[in-house]
Computed example of a mutant assay.
Amino acid sequence: MRLVVLPGDGIGPEITAATVAVLEAVSDRFGLGLALEHELAGHESLKRYGTTLRPELLEKVRAADGLVMGPMSTFDYLDESKGGINPSMFFRKKLDLFANIRPARTYPGVKHPAVAEFDLVVVRENTEGFYADRNMESGGSEMLVTPDVCVSLRRITRECCNRIARSAFRVAMTRRKRVHAVHKANVLKIGDGMFLEECRKVAAEFPEVTMDEYIVDAMAAHLVRAPQKFDVLVTTNMFGDILSDLTAELSGSIGLGGSVNAGTRYAMAQAAHGSAPDIAGQDVANPFSLILSTAQLLDWHAERLGSTNFAAAARAIEVAVADAVAAGETTVDIGGRLGTAATGKAVVARL
């Protein structure tokens, strides 16, 4: 398996280095033959090449088996004409990474604000919705009508609704066989109505899976009140973005939230959090989010190949992280005393 690795901005290089050490260890243990190709994107690329993302990187990623991307300071990249391309948006759009799959769970020993232990997954549509930088072929979908009036357009398509629903049901088949379709069809009657129609169609193809439906604001309240009730949430882009941050924080830290962006042919491991420039270079950032994201990437590759080795490697990373957390071999944000690099080494030792 050949992976392109982009360390990103802020804390990105630190957590990426810890993640690379874990990937190398798991490759040795399971004979995966991982080949890592290191490239630049983000601020370092902008300094060196005048652009946050060189066009030739796309072809390198397409020729590889996956992409590992550290956090990017995407809010800084405001002007594409000056090289400020958002790498996260770019790869999600160009590679059609339509499913953002974000597990969230509590870990014994980690303080969390949830009322009970839980283990759930948010499956979020990733290519349309209200996201103005990716839902149009050219140009954006936000328009300044007058200096005081902005109109933002949301794109919803049956194809995207159907395939994200299908992704969620496939995930549910590996878990507790429950899907919760999250929507706002009481107000967005056409767009979210279409989303629900497609979820119901797919549900008919998976009789083993139970599906229920929740309005998004009610779901937010239910997650705070009783997150243990839920298994696989499926929803549109913006709702999924918000709810997956909520569930990650309910687990004790967004630094525990893995995230894979997956399509039919390509996939990208990406930490669920941002670049946190305020703590960059201090060796305090939690590397678990990116480490767990790469486990999801290996699992995605395993499913494509039907490979038991890659699947076992993914599970081994998840177990090693859980064991490290239980032993207190973690960064300060979740109660440990280790730095970023030492936390990565603790996972490597367990592998």
Rank of each mutant, 00 (worst) to 15 (best):
F118C: 06
S244W: 05
A349M: 03
A204H: 10
F169K: 06
V121F: 05
G42F: 05
I101K: 02
A271G: 03
V26H: 00
D96W: 11
V321E: 00
D65Y: 00
P7Q: 07
K47V: 11
A248I: 11
G258W: 08
G12A: 10
G139A: 12
G258K: 09
M143N: 13
K60G: 06
E39G: 05
G336A: 10
E128K: 02
A248E: 01
E59S: 08
T264F: 06
R62D: 03
F30Q: 08
A314D: 03
M219F: 12
A165G: 14
L351S: 04
P108C: 07
M173T: 12
L298G: 05
R265F: 07
R200L: 13
G70Y: 13
F206S: 01
G12M: 11
L57S: 08
L256P: 02
A280K: 10
A341R: 13
S251F: 12
R170V: 05
P7D: 10
L58P: 08
L67I: 13
E44C: 13
E37N: 01
V149P: 09
T127Q: 10
A218N: 15
L351H: 02
D333L: 15
V234A: 05
D28A: 15
G344L: 13
T235L: 14
E198T: 09
I156W: 04
R105T: 04
I317T: 00
K345A: 15
D65F: 00
R170Q: 04
G336C: 06
P277G: 06
D76L: 15
H301I: 07
F169C: 08
R178S: 11
R337D: 12
K189S: 14
V348P: 02
G139Y: 14
G191F: 08
A311D: 11
D231S: 01
Y214R: 14
A21T: 10
Q282D: 02
F230S: 01
I242R: 09
L188H: 07
V4F: 09
Q228F: 14
N286R: 07
S73G: 14
S27F: 08
E39W: 09
L67A: 12
A63C: 01
G306Q: 11
F130R: 01
N186C: 04
S289K: 05
I15F: 11
T236L: 13
F288E: 01
G240F: 10
P71Y: 04
R124D: 01
E159R: 15
V4G: 06
R2L: 01
E205L: 15
A295R: 12
A204M: 07
K229Y: 02
T146C: 08
G336E: 07
A41M: 03
I15T: 05
A302H: 07
T106W: 13
G328A: 09
E303G: 11
K82C: 06
A349D: 14
I254T: 02
N86M: 10
L32D: 03
A172V: 03
L95K: 00
Y49D: 14
G129F: 00
A285Y: 13
D79H: 06
H38N: 12
E80Q: 02
I317Y: 00
L46H: 08
V149C: 14
P287K: 04
E303D: 12
R29P: 02
S293P: 03
V26A: 08
T19R: 01
T157S: 14
V347D: 01
S307Q: 07
L233D: 00
G10F: 02
R29D: 04
V332L: 05
E24M: 13
T74Y: 06
V151D: 03
N135K: 06
E318P: 07
A295K: 06
E80S: 03
